[in-house]
Structures are given as C-alpha cells and as structure tokens.
C-alpha cells in the first residue's frame, strides 16, 4: 500500500473543500471496498478524507411520504430499519443477501453504491483492464472467468456491478442525492446513476470528481405495491450474485397497474427491464405474459464464453419473483406453463 495523508471531515463542505485542494484524494466510508483495493494497489490515494463521522447517518421519513437515507447509514442498520422492512422489503432483502454480518455493520449506503466491480482482472494490477487502467485492454473478455456481463457490455469492458442494494434501489425508483464543490446539491435517478461501460469503463457512475453521495431518497411506497429481492449465487450465503432480481408489483383487478423489474449480476449497472415492464403494463399477470415480457427483455443478451447460463437463471428468477409477488398481492399465483 502507498503512504497517504488522512483527514477526518467534520462537515460536508470541509470534505469537498479538502478533496478539491488535494489531488488524488478519495473519500473513506466504511472502507470495506476501498481499503481492500488499496491493499491490491488498485487504489492509490494520496489522501483519505474520512467522511464516516459526518452527520449523514439518519433515516428520516419525508413529509410527503418516502424516506431519506443518509449516506453513512450502515447497511445492517438500513436492512433492519422498521420502515424499510415494512415499506421496501426488496431493499432490506437485497442488503441482507449481500456480504456478511460483520461487513454490513461497517459498509455504508454511499460506499455500497460506489463499490467497484469484483472482476478479477480489475483487482489484479498485473493484468490488462480498461476500467482500472484505460487503454490497456480487457483481459476478462476472452478469459474463462464467468461472472461477467451478458447485457450492455462493450468491447472495452465486460464487468458487472456487484451491489445487491443498487439493484433494489433501481427497481424502487430511488433518487441519489449528491453534493459537490462546484455543482452544489443535485439529485439523479438511481436508474441513471450507474453507467454502461461504452468507451469509458473507468467511470462506473455519473458522479463527478469530488462529489459526495449525501443520501438516497425513496419515493412513497404505493399502498398496494409489494416488492422482493431474489439472488442466485454459488453458495447459499456470503457470495456475490450470479444473477439477481428486484421486483415491485401492484395489481388492480388481476391486471398489472405497476411493475418494476431490475436485474443484478448481468450488466455494468443494475439493469432495469424496461422492455419487459412495458409489455406487462396493464396486462393480466399470466405466466405466458411474464415469460413473453422477460424473454423480450433478455433477447438483448449477448452472452460471452462462459456465462450463457445467466440468461436462463435471470429468466427463472424473474418468473418466480413475479409469481410470488402476484400471490403476495392477494391474487392467485399465475398458472405455470409447462
């Protein structure tokens, strides 16, 4: 690890000011990703600006409904929050499906959103990687490593985004609050926050240099809506998603009034399944309709050497999740096609 200076921020403004005048700085949240990457020399900050003690550690109910989750709220506390468990079960479930008890105690909301890919080519400085070192090429694309993207990848990068929480936030239409030295405060939709790699895989998100995630905002949960998160992985616990789905459903007279479907583990960002959602909107939630919609979404998939299995996995996860939610909405589970 390279030597670095350390600043403990006491206010938001002081943190962004410190970042502005110290080139090569990084913000330190819980450090569970950043310190790990510093040990690998993937991250070599000159200064760590510790924002973990800023007063951004509260979950507040908003006057018009919804929640504002401070950026330093630990993952464990957010998952256990009564209003999250009752109103946004997909978010609680996604958090609890990630990492381990001791990591969730330390990991923060902001850090979780901004965690980097687990692609082993990114984590190994002896390997080419356009995300870590633009222009060096992508070592992963033709490798035997299988936990790579099937959707939205580019010739420059095939990495996936590892966060479970971010997938739930995409399905829940959350907003991300940012604060920057020059930008001031701004809010962006969670669905727009993470990027596809294109020609610039070094940029995971549309955050600008020096900006801080200050909060995540959840809109009010619709009274009849239900949500869940399901994750498929190589072992039952303490493993990243091979594929996952966050789904929100509201039915009216057996027809879909609102559906949101987001996939994890398939792309460089949480993949909001807008094609499937449009096909399902207003339609009866039959197995046939669900499969038609999900298959239309996944028709865009371009599997790589070893990961075509993810397409079928995602299809089954989405199908089962929507069936479970239909039942939770008080309806009959759709009769399954053979």
């Amino acid at each position: 690890m390279k030597p670095f200076a350390y600043v403990r921020a006491t206010s938001l403004q002081q943190a962004v000011d410190a970042h502005a005048c110290r080139p090569g700085s990084r913000y330190l949240g819980g450090g569970t990703n950043l310190v790990d990457l510093m040990k690998h020399d993937v991250e070599t900050p000159t200064t760590l600006i510790d924002i973990s003690r800023l007063p951004l550690n509260r979950v507040e109910e908003l006057p018009a409904g919804g929640l504002r989750i401070g950026a330093t709220v630990p993952n464990a506390d957010l998952a256990a929050h009564p209003l999250v468990r009752s109103g946004y079960p997909a978010l609680s479930q996604a958090l609890l499906a990630g990492a381990s008890g001791q990591l969730r105690n330390v990991a923060t909301t902001g850090g979780n959103l901004l965690q980097r890919t687990r692609c082993p080519y990114f984590q190994d400085v002896s390997k080419p990687c356009n995300k870590r070192d633009p222009g060096t090429g992508c070592g992963a694309r033709d490798s035997t490593y299988r936990d790579l993207a099937v959707l939205g990848h580019s010739e420059h990068c095939v990495a996936t985004h590892p966060s479970d929480m971010a997938v739930a936030l995409a399905a829940l239409d959350a907003g991300i609050e940012l604060y920057g030295d020059t930008e001031g405060p701004r809010q962006v939709a969670a669905t727009a926050f993470h990027r596809l790699p294109g020609a610039h895989p070094e940029q995971d998100t549309l955050i600008r240099p020096g900006e801080i995630v200050t909060a995540v905002v959840l809109p009010p949960a619709a009274p009849g809506a239900v949500s869940l998160y399901r994750k498929a992985r190589d072992r039952a616990s303490y493993a990243f998603a091979l594929a996952s789905v966050a789904a929100v459903l509201e039915l009216a007279d057996g027809r879909v009034r609102h559906v949101a479907l987001a996939f994890g583990g398939l792309a460089h960002r949480p993949w909001r399944a807008t094609v499937a959602e449009q096909l399902l909107a207003g339609a009866p939630l039959t197995d046939e309709n669900v499969l038609r919609a999900v298959d239309a979404e996944l028709a865009q998939a371009r599997p790589l050497r070893g990961n075509a299995f993810k397409v079928g996995l995602a299809r089954n996860l989405a199908r089962d999740s929507l069936a479970a939610l239909a039942q939770a909405c008080g309806g009959e589970p759709p009769e399954r096609l053979p």
């Binding site: 330190l28 819980g30 790990d36 001791q102 990591l103 330390v106």
Partner: peptide, 13 residues
Amino acid sequence: GRRANSCLLLAVA
C-alpha cells in the same frame, strides 16, 4: 459493540 473485520479497518479511522 459491533462485530467487524479488523483487516479492513484502518487504525487511524
């Protein structure tokens, strides 16, 4: 009082 992985915590923090 909270369990944590001490290998990922910087002592200074």
